[in-house]
Design a protein around this nucleic acid. Structure first.
Length: 195
DNA sequence: ACCGGGATGTTCT
DNA sequence: GAACATCCCGGTG
């Protein structure tokens, strides 16, 4: 058992994603029946970021990213995968942090059932689409308020601080702005999507 | 371990 | 038509 986990408030998210992203490391993503510790994230900075979904302005798909900080932006990609982001900054900026990997904490049996392709437990949540499958996050959750007191999907902290010296590097799986060091992960962690 | 290709459908040019 | 913030499987070494 662990100590109490308290929910992050809107002020936490309402900053630049470049600040929020490394601070999300070691926080806990909680869903009904399953949770995991965040070990890898990426920032997407909006109008100045050609890799950001919001680079060319608002569309029906990216509408949530222009909403208040603390919303969950969930998008569908490659015809079969969902990925989840925490919206950051002031409304209208269109900035967010992609959650790329978790260390599974609770609900391991449920995650194994949902992630039948995972041969080892370390494969349950070591990718942005894998963790959504493990936690049953889909388009139904786009726009969910992570800070809502009664919400079933939220991010909390249990007293474990973010690493003082997180690993930093270029983002994964993009073809533009590939040089920006907007990916952060926990050094040496075995649950990251790529070492 | 590493690499290559297929899956699968929405979004935007 | 092409691209896509991905994943899985089967090949080879």
């Amino acid at each position: 058992m662990r100590g109490a986990v308290s929910r992050l408030d809107r002020d936490f998210y309402a900053r630049s994603p470049l600040e929020v992203a490394p601070e999300l490391l070691n926080k806990i993503l909680v869903a009904p029946g399953a949770s995991g510790r965040i070990v890898e994230v990426e920032a997407y900075t909006g109008a100045d970021d050609p890799a950001s979904h919001t680079f060319r302005g608002e569309t029906p798909r990216n509408r949530t990213m222009f909403g208040p900080a603390g919303l969950l932006y969930v998008y569908f990609t490659y015809g079969m995968h969902w990925c989840a982001n925490a919206v950051c900054g002031p409304p209208g900026d269109g900035v967010a942090v992609l959650i790329r990997a978790l260390e599974a904490l609770d609900g391991l049996d449920l995650m194994r059932y949902r992630r039948i392709a995972a041969r080892r437990d370390r494969d349950l949540c070591n990718g942005p689409a894998k963790l959504c499958q493990a936690l049953a996050i889909s388009g139904d959750h786009d726009g969910v308020d992570l800070t809502a007191p009664e919400g079933g999907l939220w991010i909390g902290h249990d007293g474990v601080e973010p690493p003082t010296a997180p690993a930093v590097g270029p983002r994964v799986g993009i073809s533009r702005a590939t040089d920006r060091p907007y990916r952060w992960w926990i050094p040496g962690n075995e649950y990251v999507s790529r070492p």
